[in-house]
Design a protein around this nucleic acid. Sequence first.
RNA 1: GGGCCCGUGGUGCAGCCUGGUUUAGCACGUCAGAUUGUCGAUCUGAAGAUCACGGGUUCAAAUCCCGUCGGGCCCG
Length: 375
Amino acid sequence: MSYTLIHQDKNSKARLGKLITAHGEIDTPCFMPVGTQGTVKTLAPGELEDCGAQIILSNAYHLFLRPGIEVIKKAQGLHNFISWHRPILTDSGGYQIFSLALLRKVSDEGVEFQSHIDGAKHFLRPEDIINIEQELAGDIIMPLDECVHYPCAKDYAEIAMRRTIDWAMRSKAAASKNAMPNTKKRQLLFGIVQGATYEDLRKECSQRLIEIDFDGYAIGGVSVGEPKTLRYNIVNFILQFLPLNRARYLMGLGMPEDIIGAVEIGVDMFDCVIPTRYGRNGTAFTSEGKLTVRNAPYIEDFRPLDPICSCYACKNFSRAYLRHLFNTQEILGAKLVSLHNVHFYLELMRNIRKAIAEDRFVEFKKAFLSNYTSN
RNA sequence: GGGCCCGUGGUGCAGCCUGGUUUAGCACGUCAGAUUGUCGAUCUGAAGAUCACGGGUUCAAAUCCCGUCGGGCCCG
């Protein structure tokens, strides 16, 4: 069993758990910094470790296109190639094929698409994606799924959902066929719940995936343009069907307040580009809310981004200096604010876990939100 | 001493010849917003100009004419 439920918060559905993978254990609820191309943008592996990252996310689609799977195979796997020796989750690229690829033709067999890099045509079946992910040798692998945008007509959402189930089944079959080459422990394979904003589709998808039996369950197809309340409701709706003895992963979220809200209803895992993307674009997350570093009020503000933060950026640099770096487009600015944001997110997760362990998650949430201004 | 060119938001330019269709356009900069299984990307919005100054012609002048000031170049 890969997931162990350690403690259930007494006043909410928040749960403390442990996920066991080939490269080590992960405390949940956890946040996975996104390292699509085999790097969490601007951060070296050692810096991620200093922030307390236990797992990062990478992407089969991107690595398949560049540098190509053969290169990573010759490097003896992704961990070795990128010199990150803690767990890695590889996303299938389902999302990218639907968001980045130029032309795509989805059929029951697989996806035909044109590379967003050089326009070359590729055809990938769910089995191919699993094969790629096995070559990458990540600890947790995601099957190919079909993600639809919001709004999506129900008849198409249903087609995509059924296709996702079929692909999930084929992915599991493909995954169990091959043993992992470089480790004794097997890769964990998660199922991805689709079904857009339709409760009956989401319910059916959840149940069918559970029948197939995965190591964990992800909720996909969220944050694709739908209103926040609708998203929250559909996630909450799905969670009731997911087994308590498996990790639940909400894909692609989110803002700090959204993560806290999702933990409260029982989500264990998150990934999101927000801390690094926003960091690169000059927005920092602090205990008081978002801080747009490049804004004029910070020209002569010599305080750190967040006075209560213990990250390298906050210990050494002022808002004024960081603003200057953004103003002059110096890459150090992107790096320091990314570092701060990743630290902030991971510190948030540590505090969340501590609060759950002590049965005071609800109080923690209240205290956090009373300081923190959203929007 | 003579001749020529130029003067338009913070910066660089367009518009002027053929006056009205320009509430003066563009780029960069500035200010602000977006960003959710990636984006050193991109998008959106805003502020900012008595069109060097003065006079004239005209129903109407950044635009045509005269003068002044400022900058540059050429001839002596």
